[in-house]
Amino acid sequence: MNQQEAMFKYCLRLGDNALIRSYRLSEWCSNAPILEEDLALTNFALDMIGRAQALLGYAGQIEGKGRTDDDLAYRRGERSFYNVLLTELPNQDFAYTMARELYLSAFEYFYYSGLAGSKDATLAAIAAKTLKEIKYHLSHATDWVLRLGDGTAESHAKMQTAVDDLWPYASELFESDAVDAAMISAIGAPDPAALKDSWMKHVSAILKEATLDVPTTMYTHTGGRNGIHSENLGHILAEMQFLPHAYPDAKW
């Protein structure tokens, strides 16, 4: 793996996380518990699409084979997607979605703060821009986890189940491999492994304030960052990529 290949995969990982999460957030459109949440979650989905566009577009430039952001989103197979598993899991109930959003947004808050100071001007610009939006995402998820955790007996139980079930998927965020190492040395990208303590401290404090137990399991679900996915991603892509597959050169 040379420098260019590492950079390409790195941008795909960041872009795919945004794209697949955007897809899941969009599924709340017209299904959220209240109108305000319909607006909030679809707005976040839009933030993610914008971020995916920027990152996949940049990945295409780095690859240098003329592929656009759309080519990379619509004409890639499951094994060539590098999003973490947490982004592709079904939304289930609102508590699951909020637990996922808390885990991801807290991670991204620390990660993108670091990336904003990297030596790659394009990634630094995307990170600085997206960091403003991540603050909204994190504040939104935090409010809901507090409200549901420290709410009724039923909302507390549902929030605790969601927090517990998704916990083993959060560990994948902190994996650090050869791609990360290459980017750390080349552009001063943050090391995901080094963010685990800050994340743990931040998320644990929120869970405790929400009267929830902080999970202690050490088990980790992993594979997404290397293209090994759960069955969920195939279903997502089958729907998301249907039109370009059926009508390959369709234009608006």
């Binding site: 933030d47 699409i49 914008g50 971020r51 566009q53 920027a54 939006e133």
Partner: peptide, 8 residues
């Protein structure tokens, strides 16, 4: 420059 990254 876009206002928000995903501004449609």
């Amino acid at each position: 420059t876009p206002t928000y990254t995903g501004c449609p």
